[in-house]
Amino acid sequence: NKEHILAQKEVLTPIEYEHYVKHLFDIGEITKELYIELSS
């Protein structure tokens, strides 16, 4: 869920976080809207 993803932002580097969010989007775990929101 969104809270879990945002928690990852605390422990990952910005680049790792971007890759993580992109991966979730690629596998269909999150919607495009959520992907855009989380990567901003």
Rank of each mutant, 00 (worst) to 15 (best):
L38R: 00
I36D: 07
L24Q: 08
Q8S: 08
D26C: 08
K22S: 12
L24A: 04
H19D: 05
E37D: 05
S40G: 12
Y35S: 02
K32Q: 11
E37Q: 15
F25W: 13
A7V: 07
F25V: 02
I27N: 15
E18M: 13
E3A: 15
K2G: 03
E29D: 10
K9V: 08
L12F: 04
E3G: 02
H4Q: 12
D26L: 05
F25T: 02
K9G: 07
V21G: 00
I30A: 00
Y35M: 11
Q8V: 15
Y17K: 00
K22D: 11
G28T: 01
F25Y: 11
T13M: 05
T13H: 10
E37F: 09
V11Q: 12
I27Q: 14
K32I: 14
L38W: 03
L6C: 09
G28Q: 07
S39Y: 09
S39M: 07
Q8F: 13
Y20Q: 01
L6Y: 08
E3Q: 13
T13D: 12
K32V: 15
E16L: 08
K9A: 10
L24K: 06
D26K: 10
K32H: 14
F25M: 09
F25G: 01
D26W: 12
K32N: 15
T13A: 10
I5R: 00
V11T: 15
E37M: 06
I27K: 10
E37G: 02
E10G: 07
P14W: 10
D26A: 14
V21D: 00
Y20F: 07
H23Y: 15
G28S: 06
K32W: 13
T13C: 02
V21K: 02
T31P: 11
D26M: 07
T13G: 09
Y20V: 01
I5M: 06
V21L: 12
N1L: 08
E16N: 06
Y17D: 00
K32E: 13
I30W: 01
H23V: 02
E16A: 13
K2S: 11
K2F: 10
E10L: 13
H4N: 14
P14V: 06
H23E: 11
K2A: 13
I27A: 15
H19P: 02
G28K: 03
E29K: 07
K2T: 06
L12N: 02
I30E: 00
I15W: 12
H23D: 11
E16S: 06
I15A: 14
I5S: 02
N1Q: 11
D26Q: 15
L38Q: 02
H23A: 11
P14F: 11
L38D: 00
E29V: 06
L6S: 07
N1M: 11
A7I: 06
K2C: 03
E3D: 15
